[in-house]
């Protein structure tokens, strides 16, 4: 299980880095001369907050959404880590840790919708 997990972690982070880099480079190519706007907190717009809307607008090649998709892939990495562990423990019939990983999945899902 450790071997599979470590591969998942490594490739997951590389995939998200590649997506972010792609989106970021294209974004900067178009907006290099723009004014940076992170000094005042406004909160990002809805299409950069909702994973499904991010996916949809990334598919339309809105570059900020492409970067955000990379962020979502990055953020899902630990989630998949826990899911993989859950199935690993299921296979090993390790019921105590099946419960532990089940709890972690539940709290992560809860937090995604909180």
């Amino acid at each position: 299980m450790e071997k599979v997990l470590s591969l998942l972690m490594l490739w997951g982070v590389l995939a998200s880095a590649a997506i972010m880099l792609l989106g970021g480079v294209i974004y900067l190519f178009h907006h290099a001369g723009g004014v940076p706007g992170d000094h005042v907190f406004r909160g990002e717009p809805q299409d950069l907050r909702d994973p499904f809307m991010i996916l949809k607008s990334a598919a339309e090649m809105h570059t900020r959404s492409v970067i955000q998709l990379g962020v979502v892939v990055l953020l899902l990495n630990p989630f998949f880590r826990v899911i993989l562990a859950f199935f690993g423990y299921l296979k090993e019939r390790d019921f105590a840790y099946l419960g532990v990983s089940g709890f972690l999945i539940a709290i992560l899902i809860y937090s995604f919708f909180a």
Binding site: G23, Y27, P36, D38, G43, E44, L48, I67, Q68, V71
Partner: peptide, 11 residues
């Protein structure tokens, strides 16, 4: 959900 992730800063 609160919009803390600004893609242009995060990347």
């Amino acid at each position: 959900g609160r919009g803390y992730f600004d893609p242009v800063l995060v990347f």
